[in-house]
Design a protein around this nucleic acid. Sequence first.
RNA 1: GCGCCUCUAGCUCAACGGCAGAGCAACGGACUCUUAAUCCGCAGGUUCUGGGUUCAAAUCCCAGGAGGCGCACCA
Length: 508
Amino acid sequence: MAYASRAAPHLRAECRSSVTDTGLPSGPAVPYSFARTATASELAAGYEQVAAGEGTGEEVSVAGRLMLIRRQGRLLFATLRDSTGTIQLFATSDRTPELASLARLSLGDWVGATGEIVRTKRGELSVLVSSWVLLARARRGFGDKWRGISDVETRYRQREADLWANPSTRSVFVLRSKMISLIRSWLEERGFMEVETPVLHAVAGGALARPFRTHHNALDQDFYLRIAPELFLKRLVVGGFEKVYEIGRVFRNEGISPRHNPEFTILELYEAYADYHEAMALTEDLVSYLAVSIRGTATIAYDGRELDLSPPWRRATMVDLVSERVGEDASLEVGRDALSLMASRNGIEVLGSWGPGKILLECYEKLVEPGLWGPVFVCDYPLEVSPLARAHRSRSGYVERFEAVVAGRELANAFSELVDPDDQRERFEAQLAERLSGDEEAMAVDEEYLRALEHGLPPTAGLGIGIDRLAMILAGVSNIREVVLFPTLRPSAGMPAQDVVSSEDVGD
RNA sequence: GCGCCUCUAGCUCAACGGCAGAGCAACGGACUCUUAAUCCGCAGGUUCUGGGUUCAAAUCCCAGGAGGCGCACCA
């Protein structure tokens, strides 16, 4: 490959002697499987009572990666790590075959070992090795055995190295996985059904964002990677699935920051016969449940501050929050001119194309949101900036929509869904007008969705929760890349700029 | 997109205009209860890349690359 010479300095097989040099089996000679009978955590839990210096007479087979090795002449101690924890291997010249070869293994090698469960004189539960097998050589080391890998670029680009060098990284992703599993079971218990909707969209709808574009060759048709699953999910409610949810990846062609990855995971759920008040209750119940399940308490520390996720969360309208901040009535009723003046007085530049709703939203986002710690439901957005939400039942110009702000960040967005097809068409057309005037994030008219609404969408509450941000809060990390296994990065130098195989060459 | 900062051995870091170094890893050796074991030895470099200034550049300057943070945009 063209880039092999650039990569050569890193392919330093010579920094570790080749496998044949040490008399160990070469790659193809390692076994195809290993019959493990116990994990590290099972041993720790099951043999707690074994006293120091005692054996058990029970034999197990363990497997994992060699993390530490302490050679002691004709004795050897090694720390073996599997996905559940660590277990010490204890090898002696009279019990362990090929001790010299075992002692020549490197940190990072994968080993399977069989032997009696014992506790050493110094009190460490161990497997007294009576047979062992090399399962894989680690031709590359994993860095400093005490300090791990701290270079963030290495950690993100080579996550596999990060995961085995840094236990805290492992625990974050275990937490994320557990969180998603808990969300699924919690929703299933409440009668929600998980569905999968298309990622390739002919019209990128359901949110205000710039999409990624791609192309289908056989159809000779451009598609967009979805920016939200929203419209398809509501079509399923039209079809009679009254409680549906999807946990999936969405793609937004926007900036990368500690809080934004171009592809991220969203939970969207829709519940027929419910409104946004019920979505608020569901949100606070779910999030506090997750905190208690994962952290043991609903009051957690984040970013050095306390965050009490116990329900009920504060409810506040956007108008009240902005009015309180600027010290005057910021409602839409005062009119565009008054709002515009108010915004200018508070240092916000107002564009001529903005309506009063956009001005209010801008004031909220610039003046209020940065100071909100939460958890708080910010309610009743201007209709003008909410093309998929249903008009407020008692306040003209507003919609029944909220965003949940937790730890100073938007965590969820929800509304009483707009169900009227004529109203929806007007909203789409207003969006189209904005699009034509240059707003690349404005929505397009989705005729298929409008047709679905004509079949009848019952009153429905819709809720979207950013799974990555929720994981950040529960894991106590402040960078989204810490909860995304392989975050989006610019391809590193030396990698081919483009796939050398053209799309036509890829078979099906 | 803009601003600031970072890039030195496989990893973690020194050296900050004057001979590129340490710890860990790797490699060779000693050691029968270790816990980051210890000890002895050996080896390891395009100092991100390309220019420039200088007697002399890892160090100063310019351009580029990658990354981090902030701003903008956004969720």
